[in-house]
Amino acid sequence: MAHSNVSRDEAALVRSAWRLFGYPTKVRSGNIVYELTYTAKLTPWWSLQPDLQYITYPGVAPIGPDGLPRPVGDALLVGLRTTVAF
C-alpha cells in the first residue's frame, strides 16, 4: 500500500491554471495505491510475477470535447513480469 499527498504549491498551481484557462478541475489531495504481487519460481532459471494494482483517483481529469474536464474513476492495473536468467 502506498499513500501520497499533493502539496499546497501544486494545489495552488492547479487553481491558477483554472483561473488562467477558465475551466474547472478538481484539486486533488492525493491518492492511495493498493498492490498485490507474488513471484513464482517455476524453474531454477525462470520466474513469473503477476501484479495487481488498484489506484484511487489516479490523476487529473482529461479534457472532454466540450472543453471541460471529465470525471475520472479509480484505476485497476493488471500486469505480468517474467524473468529468465542464464
Rank of each mutant, 00 (worst) to 15 (best):
A2D: 15
A2T: 13
A2Q: 14
A2N: 13
H3L: 10
S4F: 11
N5C: 14
V6R: 09
V6Q: 08
V6D: 10
S7K: 03
S7W: 04
D9F: 03
E10G: 06
E10D: 12
E10K: 06
E10T: 13
A11T: 00
A11Q: 07
A12Y: 04
L13T: 08
L13G: 02
L13F: 06
R15L: 06
R15H: 04
S16K: 06
S16N: 07
A17I: 09
A17C: 11
R19N: 05
L20W: 04
G22E: 00
G22K: 02
Y23H: 04
P24C: 01
V27D: 06
V27L: 07
V27Q: 03
V27P: 02
S29Y: 08
G30S: 05
G30T: 01
G30I: 01
N31A: 12
I32V: 14
I32K: 12
Y34K: 08
Y34W: 12
E35C: 10
E35W: 03
T37P: 11
T37N: 14
Y38G: 07
T39D: 13
T39N: 12
A40W: 13
K41P: 14
K41G: 07
K41S: 10
K41T: 11
L42N: 03
L42Y: 08
L42G: 05
P44T: 02
W45A: 15
W46V: 13
W46C: 11
W46E: 08
Q49P: 07
Q49S: 06
Q49H: 04
Q53W: 07
Q53Y: 08
Y54D: 01
I55F: 06
T56F: 01
T56K: 03
T56Y: 00
T56Q: 01
T56I: 01
Y57S: 15
Y57V: 11
Y57F: 10
Y57K: 14
P58G: 07
P58C: 01
P58L: 03
G59E: 01
V60A: 13
V60Y: 15
V60I: 12
A61R: 04
A61G: 11
P62M: 01
I63K: 01
I63N: 00
G64P: 00
P65K: 02
P65H: 02
G67D: 05
G67M: 03
L68Q: 15
P69R: 06
R70N: 12
V72F: 00
V72T: 06
G73Q: 01
G73R: 01
A75P: 03
L76A: 15
L76V: 13
V78N: 14
G79A: 14
L80E: 09
L80M: 10
R81G: 14
R81T: 13
V84K: 08
V84S: 08
A85Q: 11
A85G: 06
A85D: 12
